[in-house]
Nucleic acid binder design. Sequence first.
DNA 1: CAGTATCCCAAGCGATACTG
DNA 2: CAGTATCGCTTGGGATACTG
Lengths: 155, 155
Amino acid sequence: MDWNRYDAGACSVSRTVGILGDRWTVLVLREVFNGVRRFGEIQEHLGVSKSVLTQRLQQLVDDGVLERQPYQEPGDRARHEYRLTDRGRDLRPVLVAMMDFGDRHLSGGEPPVRLLHRDCGQQVHAQLVCDCGHRVETGREVAIAPGPGAEPLAG
Amino acid sequence: MDWNRYDAGACSVSRTVGILGDRWTVLVLREVFNGVRRFGEIQEHLGVSKSVLTQRLQQLVDDGVLERQPYQEPGDRARHEYRLTDRGRDLRPVLVAMMDFGDRHLSGGEPPVRLLHRDCGQQVHAQLVCDCGHRVETGREVAIAPGPGAEPLAG
DNA sequence: CAGTATCCCAAGCGATACTG
DNA sequence: CAGTATCGCTTGGGATACTG
């Protein structure tokens, strides 16, 4: 199934969903963002089968989101770990926005984890803001407009 | 598969992924955010089968993200449409964050669609900010901390 | 139009065994 | 440890036909 052939209308969402893949992919990313970078650790945290984890990590590497870094602790054999690329780091707002939603609506008001700003200790959220700095509070404040990459819909 | 039993570490992400479900669910949400609210229109835009669309809409209603609103245009027969609930609207930052990522990395720099702030015409993005207003630019600025809803991991 | 029901096929999963 | 290979089994998909 080609996840990009639909509705040029907002296909950046569709393309990103294509990279986020399925549930496991997102949870793998969450682990990596949390500093869990080794195959075995990720597998243990998620309870996912090895074949699935292998496939998801491979896909994330192929998509340029993760990279496989060999490293060797002295006196130990060579290992490698999965690290975020620059591109991968740009997925953080997606994860944080998901976390915000879950905290608000699916955790009984008791967030299991918090993301804190080191400078001030305050909690970090994904906020809608416009390029000149206004916070966007409601959906009524936004309008959809075709961008430069828009294609006319067939049909 | 219970998508919540893993790693209390950041399970708000996991719970939200459980609601976003699969790719189709996200694309359905995108349509609704874009004002496409009727079964047939959504189906046409997405090219999804009726059975799948039915199931996804039902799931979104069950999850409290959409609600089914009957309405009747004069001289026409009764219809209904799917509308975002307040909870559903809170998913917007997730969609916008995905759109931002896709625009930056997967669209060759030519965003197919833009989200504009009505007040000023500037583009809207999902930005990481902390509660006292600082913009968070890099991952190094954030720290993970257990929240009030944290549970110790078994094992 | 907006679904529901059925069918059949393909993809995806975990479990297990095996490898460097 | 970090995979790869294989294997049934289940799930989930589109297509189609049917219903109010």
